[in-house]
């Protein structure tokens, strides 16, 4: 945990010990660990002299933060209006069927976390799926398997 603390200190310093940038600090930590560890929340709050509960409030309010470890790849199925009208609910169900997890869940092998998101702003390509940083446009239920396979093959 020593090195981790050094990293956390760096993150705090990067944002100039500014309490109002707690969300940014948490986002950086989340990127590092793929979730926001409890110890990290406690440590950062104590360093910044904020009650721990304020950090916990933040971690549970903002959707981009997660208190449980996430899979190596995060699949975001866009549920924006355009995507909804063009079959996104079916696409989400197909992912749930194929990955055997519900939305918000992580596969047992920790490879995928399945999330829905309320619009990624690429509505012309609806239904849209984002895996990590990559977008897949005009996805349908039958192409879901190909997307999953693409990432499974990469292992």
């Amino acid at each position: 945990m020593e090195t981790d603390r050094a990293k956390l200190d760096n993150t705090i310093a990067k944002y100039g010990n500014d309490r109002s940038l707690l969300l940014s600090m948490f986002q950086d930590i989340q990127r590092e660990y793929r979730y926001l560890p409890k110890e990290a929340i406690k440590y950062v709050c104590e360093k910044l002299n904020i009650p721990v509960v304020k950090g916990y409030e933040m971690a549970t309010f903002y959707k981009s933060l997660s208190l449980v470890p996430r899979g190596k790849h995060t699949i975001h199925v866009c549920m924006g209006t355009a995507c909804h009208l063009k079959g996104a609910p079916g696409v989400l169900e197909a992912f749930e069927r194929d990955l055997k997890v519900k939305r918000g869940g992580t596969t047992e092998d920790m490879l995928f976390t399945l999330e829905s998101v309320n619009c990624l702003g690429a509505c012309a390509l609806a239904p849209l799926v984002r895996v990590d940083e990559k977008d897949f446009g005009k996805v349908n239920q039958t192409s879901v398997k190909n997307i999953i396979d693409e990432y499974k093959r990469g292992e």
């Binding site: 549920m79 209006t81 355009a82 309320n118 619009c119 702003g121 509505c123």
Partner: peptide
Amino acid sequence: DEGDPGAFMDR
């Protein structure tokens, strides 16, 4: 913070 679903003007 363009959040309306189906909108991407600001982006």
